[in-house]
Amino acid sequence: TTYYDVLGVKPNATQEELKKAYRKLALKYHPDKNPNEGEKFKQISQAYEVLSDAKKRELYDKGGE
């Protein structure tokens, strides 16, 4: 599973699309609303952290993490 899959976006997604997808999923899986989905929330946050940063995203796209 790639970070793009976690957020449900395509690899060519814009920053705005990433932000929108992250917010939607973060609300859905937030531990306050969904106590059993803490791990999913962490995955979503990690994916967004990497993909929202241009340098980290470039490194990730080249095969790094």
Rank of each mutant, 00 (worst) to 15 (best):
T1K: 14
T2V: 05
T2M: 06
Y3T: 01
Y3C: 05
Y3N: 02
Y3M: 05
Y4E: 01
Y4I: 01
V6W: 12
V6L: 14
V6A: 08
V6T: 07
L7K: 00
L7D: 00
L7Q: 00
G8T: 03
G8F: 05
G8Y: 04
V9P: 00
K10R: 11
K10H: 11
P11W: 10
P11N: 09
P11C: 10
P11V: 12
N12M: 06
A13V: 10
A13P: 01
T14M: 03
Q15I: 10
Q15A: 13
Q15H: 12
E16I: 08
E16N: 10
E17H: 04
E17A: 06
E17K: 04
E17L: 05
E17R: 03
K19F: 10
K19T: 15
K20G: 10
K20L: 14
K20C: 11
K20F: 11
A21K: 04
Y22P: 00
Y22S: 00
Y22E: 01
Y22L: 03
R23T: 15
R23L: 15
R23A: 15
K24G: 10
K24Q: 14
K24T: 14
K24V: 15
K24I: 12
L25I: 04
L25T: 01
A26C: 13
A26Y: 14
A26G: 05
L27V: 07
L27N: 13
L27K: 13
L27I: 11
K28V: 10
K28F: 10
Y29T: 04
Y29G: 01
H30L: 06
H30S: 11
D32M: 09
D32P: 13
P35N: 06
N36T: 12
N36F: 10
N36G: 08
E37V: 09
E37D: 14
G38K: 14
E39P: 05
E39N: 07
K40Q: 07
K42R: 14
Q43F: 08
Q43H: 08
S45D: 05
Q46D: 10
Q46N: 10
A47P: 00
Y48L: 03
E49Q: 09
V50T: 13
V50Q: 04
V50E: 04
V50G: 02
L51I: 04
L51V: 04
L51C: 01
S52A: 08
D53A: 02
D53K: 03
D53R: 02
A54V: 14
K56F: 09
K56P: 02
K56Y: 07
K56M: 12
K56C: 12
K56S: 14
R57G: 03
R57Y: 03
R57V: 03
E58A: 09
E58K: 06
E58G: 05
E58H: 06
L59I: 14
L59P: 03
L59T: 09
Y60R: 02
K62L: 14
K62Q: 11
K62I: 08
K62A: 12
K62V: 07
G63T: 11
G63W: 14
G63I: 11
G63R: 11
G63D: 10
G64V: 15
G64K: 12
E65Q: 12
